[in-house]
Design a protein around this nucleic acid. Structure first.
Lengths: 332, 332
DNA sequence: CTGAAAGCGCTTACAG
DNA sequence: CTGAAAGCGCTTACAG
């Protein structure tokens, strides 16, 4: 189908004995074509194996039929963490039947504003932006440029960009209450990165869920090593800690490693709660009690939100929170 | 930058006091433009915040500056497995500096040949195809249509499509030799799906590496559950098994679960070797001895192969095998 | 070094 | 229901 031999609309029209207008109408399923004409065109299309040239189409319609998934992440987190794959699957699921293509853009495209140029240069009809960090000007810029955007995850800035997020706060409240309910008295948290909403909201939720003082806090990025280090820090500062809420399963995995090294029994000596209910939660020993968030649903809902916006549907709620839920296993 | 107010090349030309031809030459870095003209054009572009319309460009150049990553996988494997994320990262790394965009296409796009139409309809300049299963006609079809394609993973059919793969065979040979070297006498394998080259080649390698008879075989798909079931099957048929080569870490995770349920000590009773050296290998207890393959490198090399082909470089070797290597940990 | 003109392959009023 | 014609925003010989 490539090269100069690719049949054009013109060729189809000749073969079918009609005008280009008629062929175009058939291709686009527009009304006002006789059965006879449609039949002839369909036959010619099949015979010539005609495929419309998308570039020509885009040029005149000023639409691209594709949307971007922008992954605003520099490091390895999204790849060592099943989070990203699930988002991707959800986004894909959300696009089913939309006849749109997904263009994947990553942080490295930021070199000399290439990302912004690309997004604003009419290459895509809209964008889903994932994994924003505090202070990222991208969402505001895209809004200014008039590009429809929906974020996965609450932005930390006070920008008026629609988003979909898990209810991190409530999930973390539940985690704290669960540990308290088990009779634990010395409960700590390993908080996630504070330049991302997930990190901030889970810390706030934990603090809100603790009835008494909540000041046994260590910080980690979303990695095994970070979790291991933070757990070591907690053990040193608070030797009597008997409950820990880790802001992500991957952090909990690191914490488990450190706890094993220190000969702590889980949950006897220390009860541990994670967050995510990722595949990690059931591959550890003991399996993790954790707060489930449906990441795939997050991707799907965000995408549907964007598509609805593109379809010009009634103004949707500007943001959506998806429920989270504690899942008990053997680590508590 | 969207909407009818977006500046065109024409507008830039007027603002700079030159012709459209000259502006086009400046944008495309073509020779034969006076410094004076270039300066004026650059200023006008900056002032108007001009971004070239890609659709118009594609139409006339017949290039899209994008390549497709086709993930030929229906089920959940690619998402419950870190494999896909690593491939994706590798592909991205391979594209750095190529000024091309990545369009991600998945199996669901196959509905009424939409995938093939899309790929052959001039939307992309070439494609990387991952995770092929036996009997998939896609690679041959794309080749016929003249679309440059490179596969991640050896195709099982005898098609003349270039590919890049890990040396699964040699890695599996090493795994078998390792178990033999440890003095194990009753060595089994949990083979992967036999409709994929990775499954076939790892089984063949294991058989080649075994000096004596190699007939203790169970099969699993690339999943925890599959691994658990296959391990149960092996234990029942061969109660004296003392070594197992699992064709993937995720299969080994399932095997570990079953072994724990049966009260088997690892590695004392049974030594276990995985394949991949994925993140799973170090989150299990005990940590897995496994065959390392560099999946990210796989994605990167494949992409560079494709880009070289697009650049019309000298004919490259039609296929490439990347080395694999045994990594010993505590499961053997 | 520069510009006028043709043309890429479609869609879309417009007139019939 | 149908077709002739204009035009989307670029690139690319071609002539100067």
């Amino acid at each position: 189908m490539r090269g100069s031999q690719a049949p054009t609309l013109e060729a189809v029209a000749r073969a079918a004995g009609v005008s280009r207008s008629t062929v175009s109408r058939v291709i686009n399923d527009l009304p006002g074509v006789s059965k006879r004409a449609k039949l002839a065109v369909d036959r010619a299309i099949a015979e010539l194996r005609y495929v419309p040239n998308q570039a020509a189409r885009n040029l005149v319609t000023r639409r691209t039929n594709s949307i971007a998934l922008v992954v605003s992440e520099r490091g390895d987190r999204l790849f060592s963490d099943p989070f990203f794959a699930k988002i991707l699957r959800g986004v894909y699921a959300g696009m089913v039947g939309s006849r749109r293509q997904l263009v994947l853009l990553m942080d490295q495209d930021r070199v000399d504003g290439a990302l912004e140029s690309y997004l604003c240069g009419g290459h895509v009809d809209g964008a889903v932006v994932v994994s924003l960090h505090r202070g990222d000007p991208l969402p505001a810029r895209l809004m200014e440029a008039g590009l429809p955007v929906v974020l996965v995850g609450r932005p930390l800035e006070d920008v008026n960009v629609p988003y979909v997020d898990s209810d991190n706060f409530t999930g973390a409240v539940e985690a704290a209450r669960h540990l308290i309910g088990l009779g634990r008295r010395r409960i700590a948290t390993i908080a996630g990165p504070q330049d991302m909403a997930a990190g901030v909201d889970r810390l706030n939720g934990w603090q809100a869920g603790m009835v008494e003082t909540a000041d046994m806090i260590a910080y980690a990025d979303f990695s095994v090593e970070g979790g291991a280090r933070a757990m070591a820090e907690l053990l040193q500062k608070y030797p009597d800690v008997d409950g820990v809420f880790a802001a992500a399963d991957i952090i909990a995995v690191g914490a488990l490693r450190t706890l094993a090294e220190h000969g702590k029994r889980i949950p006897d000596d220390i009860a541990l709660v994670g967050f995510d209910d990722s595949v990690l939660a059931t591959t550890t020993a003991p399996q993790l009690t954790t707060v489930r968030q449906d990441v795939e649903e997050l991707g799907r809902t965000t995408t549907q939100h964007l598509l609805a916006q593109l379809a010009g549907e009634q103004p949707l709620p500007s943001s959506v929170l998806l429920p989270t839920k504690l899942v008990q296993r053997s680590s508590t």
